[in-house]
Amino acid sequence: MAMEVSREECLAFFREHGGTPEVYFSDHFERFRKTFHEFDGDWKGGRRVLDIGAHWLHQALIWSRGGYAITAVEFPALFLEENVRRAASAANIRLLGCADLGSATDLSALPDDSADVVLFTEILEHITFNPIAFWKQIYRILAPGGRIIVTTPNYYSWRGRAWRPLRFLAGRGGGLPVEDVIGVGNYAHHWKEYSLGEVKRYFGLLSPDFVVAKAKRVPTYQRSRVGWKRAVQTVMDVMPLTRPNMHVEIALPQKRQGIVAVASY
């Protein structure tokens, strides 16, 4: 089991190397930490990690401190920022800019079978392009015996469908409120949120070589400090169907048939 890394230690590291968006890091730290331990506690395989959508290397740092060798993928412009480059150098994280995940041509720089673990956390819900070309690259890069880790919001979360019936009945729709679309920074809107069954189906359609190794709905990552909200979270998290988050691990035991999905558009 890897040594625990605290929020304060991580923030001190980023401050030492030029700073980072600390509010975002603090809001997501528990997700980063719990995702790592959910996987690392059972994993006996290789330590080469490809972190898709690495942003400011927040999650990458935790995995690096946990003994994994990280290649971080993000838009090239972000990796030109001095603080990101300094943090990457200090943590021995390789940076790979990818201008377009839809075509994923920049991922061609990575050799076949060069990753044991692919982190695809809080990305699935943002994809607006046909993903087949991207997954062909990931399939090529992922070594046999490797895994893809997917975290994504649960469509049936109590914070969504189950928690807003009055909004639904009032004809005010679903998904993000228009107030948030107009006025709240959220690092890209959720184009589609999935059920657990849909995530399994998604990878089954991509390739019969993909095998669901773990699939679970997980409780709230970080409890509210507001008493009544914390109480609601505690009660609703008891019911698996309406837990707000999902953790899915997709294994690739052997490479036989490849990505078989074909786009009709």
Rank of each mutant, 00 (worst) to 15 (best):
K214T: 15
T234L: 01
Y202D: 01
M236R: 06
E198Q: 15
E198A: 15
H190Q: 06
Y202F: 14
K216H: 04
A213R: 12
G204K: 04
V199P: 02
M239Y: 06
E198W: 07
G197T: 08
V212I: 14
F210R: 06
R167G: 10
F210E: 07
R172D: 10
T220I: 13
Q222C: 02
V212Y: 01
Y221T: 02
G171K: 11
G185T: 09
G197F: 00
R172W: 13
V178C: 00
V211R: 12
N186Q: 12
P240N: 07
P177G: 05
Q222H: 02
W191Y: 12
L166I: 15
F168H: 14
H190D: 08
G171R: 10
H189L: 11
K200Y: 00
V211C: 07
Y194A: 12
G204E: 11
A170M: 14
A231G: 08
D180W: 07
T220A: 11
V178N: 07
L205P: 00
T234C: 03
L196Y: 05
E179N: 09
G175L: 07
P219E: 02
P240T: 03
V211L: 08
Q233W: 00
A213F: 04
L241K: 06
L196T: 06
Y187N: 15
A231Y: 00
G185S: 10
R172H: 10
S207Q: 05
R172C: 04
Q222M: 01
D237K: 01
G171Q: 11
K216S: 14
R225C: 11
G171Y: 05
V226H: 05
M239T: 14
L205S: 09
G173V: 12
R201N: 09
P240M: 03
A188H: 08
V238R: 10
L206A: 05
M236Y: 05
K214F: 02
P177E: 04
F203C: 10
M236T: 06
A213Q: 14
V184T: 13
Y194R: 08
N186L: 07
I182K: 08
R172Y: 09
G204I: 03
E193K: 12
V178L: 12
